[in-house]
Design a protein around this nucleic acid. Structure first.
Lengths: 213, 213
DNA sequence: TCCAGGTCTATACCAACGTATAATCGGCCA
DNA sequence: TGGCCGATTATACGTTGGTATAGACCTGGA
C-alpha cells in the first residue's frame, strides 16, 4: 500500500535460517537486515522507518524473551515476531503477554510469516505516526515557560481565569496574557483543542507530577 | 483487598477437575460456579459483580477458543483464563491474541491459577467501573434531544456559537439555549469537562456516525 | 381537542474572554 | 553595563458566552 522505506530485522544464530528467512522476505520486496546475535542487532543502525523484528526465541546467551523485555526497557518498540523450533506453551504465553505480535513454531508456512511481518510493519507505521505527533506536542509543551505550563493545565482543568488568578495570587489580566501565549505556542485553535492537547501531553507514559513545572 | 462480591466461573467437562478447581478457589474465599459445558454456563445467571472465567480449551462440541470469541460477540467481556491438558503453541497464541489473560497447561501450580484469577478479577473490576461510568455518560447523551446532541458535538469540536448558528441556519441565541441545556443535562461543569465527555461518548466502540442524531 | 415537549426566536444584561498597547521589574548573559 | 527574556500589571475596547424571561410554532399522544 504505502511506500515508506520499511524494513525487517532478523536475529537468529543459525546462518542457514537467517539466509532462508532473508531470502523469503526479500522476495516480496522487503528490506532485510539479518544478525546472528542481539548484540549485532543493537550495534547496527536501523533506517528511520517502520519495521519489525523477527526473533529466534533460543539464542546463545540472552534468550529472545529477555531481549524482548530489554528492548522495551530501552524504549525500542519494534514489533516482535518470535520463531522457534523448540518452544513450549509457557514460553509462547510469556512472549504474547509481553506484547509479541506472533509466535511461530518451525516449520511454519511462509505465508504465515509474511502475514505477520506485514501486519507488524503496519502496526509500527501507525505507532510511529502517533509517537511523532505526541513528540511534537510534548516539544511544544516544553517550549512553554513554567508559568505557561502551569496555567495551561489549570485552563484545561476547566478553571476560569479569575479562579486561576486567585489560586496563583495573580491578577486576571496576567492569566489572560499567559493563556493567549499558551494558545499560540501550542497551536491550539480553540479551547476544546487545547483540552485535547493537554490530555495527550499529560497522558501516560511520563505521568505528570507537577515537578516539571 | 476489596470486598466486592466477586466470583469465578469454571467450565470443564471433567467433573473431577471441576471439583478440584472449585475446591481450590473456594479455599481462598472465592465464590465459584462450575459448569460441565458452555451451554450450562450461558444458561445460568451470574452475580452482578467482578468475575472471571476459567475455561478448558478442549470441550465437547464447541472448543474453548471458539467460545471465547462467541462471548466477545455477545458483549460478555469476562476475563478468560484457559487451562488445558493437551494444548499446543498455536492454540495458546490464538487464545492470547484473542485477549485471554492466561493460558495454563496441566499440571500447573495452584498458586499460578490463583494469581491469574485474582488478577483477572481486579481487571474485571476496573473494566466494570469504566463501563459503568461510560454507560452513564451514554445515557445522558441519549437523554438529549437530537438538536442538543448535534450542538454538543459542534461545541466540543471547538465551533463558536455563531459558527454553529450559521452552519445550522439558526440564530445564535438558539444555540445558546440548547448549549446551556446540554451543559445541564450532561452535568458538565465546564467546557473542558464537556469536551472530555463528548470524546468518551463518541469513542469506539459505537463509533459516532451522525445517523443517530 | 387539549397538552407536553421540542424547536426557534427575541430582548436585555452581565460575566468571561481576547487583543492591543504599554509599562515595570528582576535575572542572566555577553 | 546593555540587552533579552520571563513575569507581572494596567487601561481600553470588542467579542463571545451565560442567564433570565417570554412568546410562537409544530407535532404527537391522551
Amino acid at each position: 500500500m504505502t511506500n515508506d522505506p520499511s524494513f525487517v530485522c532478523i536475529v537468529d544464530d543459525d546462518a542457514s535460517i537467517r539466509q532462508a528467512l532473508a531470502g523469503l522476505l526479500r522476495s516480496v520486496g522487503l528490506t532485510v537486515f539479518a544478525y546472528p546475535s542481539t548484540e549485532d542487532f543493537l550495534a547496527d543502525a536501523r533506517p528511520d522507518g517502520p519495521g519489525c523484528l523477527v526473533l529466534d526465541v533460543r539464542l546463545p546467551g540472552q534468550s529472545g524473551l529477555e531481549f524482548q523485555r530489554e528492548l522495551e526497557g530501552m524504549g525500542i518498540h519494534l514489533p516482535v515476531i518470535f520463531i522457534t523450533g523448540h518452544g513450549d506453551i509457557p514460553m509462547s504465553v510469556t512472549a504474547m503477554k509481553a506484547g509479541a505480535l506472533e509466535f511461530l513454531t518451525k516449520p511454519f508456512r511462509d505465508q504465515d510469516l509474511l502475514d505477520a511481518v506485514h501486519k507488524a510493519i503496519e502496526l509500527d507505521r501507525d505507532r510511529r505516526r502517533d509517537d511523532a505527533a505526541l513528540s511534537e506536542l510534548r516539544e511544544r509543551f516544553q517550549s512553554l515557560t513554567p508559568r505557561e505550563r502551569e496555567i495551561m493545565l489549570l485552563v484545561a482543568a476547566g478553571q476560569l481565569n479569575k479562579q486561576i488568578a486567585a489560586a496563583l495570587n495573580l491578577s486576571e489580566i496576567t492569566i489572560k496574557v499567559h493563556r493567549a501565549q499558551v494558545m499560540r505556542k501550542m497551536q491550539a485553535k480553540s479551547l476544546p483543542d487545547l483540552v485535547r492537547i493537554a490530555d495527550k501531553v499529560s497522558a501516560t507514559p511520563f505521568r505528570f507530577t507537577g515537578a516539571e513545572l
